[in-house]
Design a protein around this nucleic acid. Structure first.
Lengths: 225, 225
DNA sequence: TGTTGGTCTATGGTATACCAAAATAAGATG
DNA sequence: CATCTTATTTTGGTATACCATAGACCAACA
């Protein structure tokens, strides 16, 4: 027979489904940072036995979204300012590399798609929806990393980005710095379409540095919380 | 009682021990790349039940040292040339960042320790032991990343480095390029002690670029294997 | 001889039982 | 009332039983 299977058979293990669902609940705040998570509770909540749930929890612990206490209990991660800074530094160079690679290898369509996401952001920024703005922002950055064609880079970036998700979301509810962010994105797009690798790397690193400041000011205001 | 526990209580779960042991066996080649690993076999080999072994295998799968086939079987990872390139690119910028941060924040002792590792390497390079040379090389790079004071960076770097371990080890058995590597390391050390962040970043990225070429030539010679 | 179909085995996925340790609640004691 | 001690409950760690499926082997048939 010359029929080629149109789409691969997908094995969706309970553990993997649970990992995805838990990740979603954590980054979206349904499971509050610092809160304890117990295998049995999640088990009944998600309708699977402890075994796959446990695997999901341990997977997220490896990702850094869940931490284990010294006595073996699990808690939703609640990264410190220092940790967030460390992550942003790393993400900064990862995206810088992604931008540089994208200039070298991405096809015109990918770059246009990125530019279009930036246009979307400009339009959405004038509206009220924090979530739309936030998700378009995420999509913009993700598209750049995807355009690098480097899968390792993409996955490393994704893992760190998930750990930052909540912090960045909270930040994005403050509309104060949107104008600056938009300008920084413009600089990135301009350098991208000009295929100016160094320029794009510089722009993205600067953008991340700014994100660091925003997070510090919003989540850890100088006057203390 | 006012006795404070002198060293942290360590819970060494079987799963974690097994993860470490399996990782060691994989990177050192005791489990050959591409070979299948079965839970039951490892279970009897390491003397633990399938549960912790399975957790270890899945953890290493997340790290990328083990891959799962579409049918659910586990195999020791055998990264393609393309994948190795992708990893080296990422490691390159990670170490570049580490070097730059180290210039900014590392204390003099750390930098001296790094310089001393380079001296060790020079001495060992004249000897015959591939393994000593290789491990000192690893230690040199790891020390730089540690000196950055960025834990996220350290862990991200470690995970990727493990995935490259075997490829680099095989490469290092060819002594051809030692001289060049030593010179590149010298450049790194010089920039480090001068606290020249840009210089150290440039030197490390160049060094990684060279590693890319070495791996291609050694593992994937142009004439085909 | 090559191919097809079926059976048997190997293997991973899941649920569950049991245990040890830690956290919490309860009660006794000063 | 505070505090220490003890019982109870909660929770994670591990082992194991059971199941579904993929892979291997073999036999019957074209």
């Amino acid at each position: 027979m010359n029929l080629e299977s149109p789409n691969k058979i997908k094995r969706d293990l309970l553990a993997d489904q649970a990992t995805g669902e838990l990740r979603r609940m954590i980054v979206q705040g349904a499971l509050p940072p610092g809160g304890q998570v117990t295998e049995r509770e999640l088990s009944s909540l998600l309708g699977a036995s402890r075994t796959p749930i446990r695997e999901a929890v341990r997977a997220l612990a490896l990702e850094g979204l869940i931490t284990l206490s010294s006595t073996g209990r699990y808690f939703v991660a609640n990264p410190s300012e220092h940790e967030l800074h460390d992550m942003l530094r790393v993400i900064g160079v990862l995206e810088g590399l992604a931008g540089r690679l994208a200039c070298a290898v991405a096809d015109a369509n990918s770059l246009e798609a990125i530019a279009r996401l930036q246009e979307d952001m400009r339009r959405i920024a004038e509206g009220q929806s924090h979530l739309d703005y936030f998700e378009t922002n995420i999509a913009f950055h993700r598209a750049i990393v995807a355009a690098s064609g480097n899968r390792v880079l993409f996955e490393t970036h994704k893992a760190l980005n998930d750990r930052l998700y909540r912090a960045r979301y909270v930040c994005s509810t403050k509309a104060t710095n949107r104008q600056r962010a938009l300008e920084e994105h413009d600089a990135v797009v301009t350098a991208l379409v000009a295929r100016d690798g160094d320029g794009v790397e510089r722009a993205l690193r600067g953008h991340m540095g700014q994100a660091e400041k925003n997070i510090s000011e919003t989540l850890f205001p100088p006057s203390g919380n």
